[in-house]
Structures are given as C-alpha cells and as structure tokens.
Simulated assay, not measured.
Amino acid sequence: MSSDVHNGQTSGGEFTHFNEQGRARMVDISGKEATVRKAVAVSKVTMDPATLEAIREGRIGKGDVLAVAQIAGIQGAKKTSDWIPMCHPLALTGVDIRFHDNGVDEIQIEATVKTEGKTGVEMEALTAASAAALTIYDMCKALQKDMIIGPTMLQSKSGGKNGDFNL
C-alpha cells in the first residue's frame, strides 16, 4: 500500500481502513513520525431557561452537573478507542473541557485534546464533547426530557502530515 495517505485515502484513491479483501482494519501507523497533535471539538445542549437556571444555581438532584460532565468528557477522551473500533489507543498528554452558557437556554461545550504521537486526536476530542453533552442530558433528564444535543463538530486540529484544519 502506498505511504502517501491523505484524508483517509491513499494517493490511488483507496481507503486506508480496508485491507485487500475489502474488510475493515486498523491503519498501520508504525512508519509515521510522532508529532505534537491537538484537536478541539464543540457541542452544545439546548434546554429550557428553567433547566439552565437550575444547573447554574446547583439545584439538580444528582449533583454538580458541569463538574460531572467535565469528568465524563475527560474519561470519554481517554476511552475513545474502546468506543470507536478503528481508533488507536493513545497516550493523551492533555484533555480540557470548558463550558459556556448563553445565559438563556444553551450550554456550549469545548473539548481540547492533545498528544504527541503518530495519529491525531480528532476522535478523542469529538468523544469528549459528546460524553460531556450526554452527561448533562443524563443529569437533567428528570427535569426536562426534550433537551437537544448538538451540533457536535470538529472545530480545529493541528499537527500531523495532513496539516491544520480550522472550521
């Protein structure tokens, strides 16, 4: 297989996650150079103003929603390869989860993940943002079941052969 890989495809247009039999495989990264890598993913949870107020005032019966969501996001980043079959287990060098609210009906989540390695941390950042959003939902669902999660997306990434990406 060609070592010239871009956006999941070889220079011949073949996807790198399939072997010669067309079956899924984990991409071999043994020949790649280790570089510093960083990815930022974002998500949001939209809710009733009363639900946001209850979170801000610490009136959710399960505890401090954002503290628990922060830990869930960190754990999600660390366990991404357990959730996403073709992800490599990575030694992460940093995970930071930040929350911002619009003062009305949204909590925005920003997950930043870093490593020094041979493959990127985009999936770890996306998983961290998703796990934090799902935890907010879980902790508040007794108060409101129709909260909306998303959109969840990669905001930026740096490092690696394919270069930087910014939304």
Rank of each mutant, 00 (worst) to 15 (best):
I55F: 08
K44Q: 14
Q21F: 05
M86C: 10
A54N: 09
F15P: 09
T16P: 00
D28A: 01
E33P: 03
E33Y: 00
V27N: 08
D48W: 00
E57S: 15
T16F: 09
F15L: 15
H17G: 00
A67M: 10
T51M: 10
E20V: 06
E14D: 14
K78D: 02
G73M: 08
L66H: 06
A67V: 08
Q21S: 10
E20M: 00
T16G: 00
C87T: 15
E33L: 01
G76E: 08
A91Y: 06
V45L: 01
P85E: 12
Q70A: 01
I60L: 12
Q21G: 00
D48C: 05
M26I: 15
M26C: 03
S30V: 05
M86F: 14
R23V: 01
A54S: 13
R37C: 03
R56P: 00
V42E: 10
E33I: 08
H17Y: 10
L52Q: 07
P89L: 09
I60S: 05
E14H: 14
V27I: 13
T80W: 09
A67P: 03
G61A: 14
G22T: 12
A39V: 09
I55K: 04
I74C: 01
A91P: 06
G63C: 12
T35A: 03
R23D: 13
G61C: 04
E20T: 11
K78F: 02
Q21T: 09
G73R: 04
T51Y: 02
M26H: 07
A77G: 10
Q70G: 02
T16Q: 06
Q70D: 03
P89G: 06
P85H: 14
G61E: 15
Q21Y: 07
L92E: 13
M86A: 10
R25H: 11
S43Q: 06
M86I: 15
R59S: 08
S81K: 09
V65W: 05
I29W: 04
F15C: 11
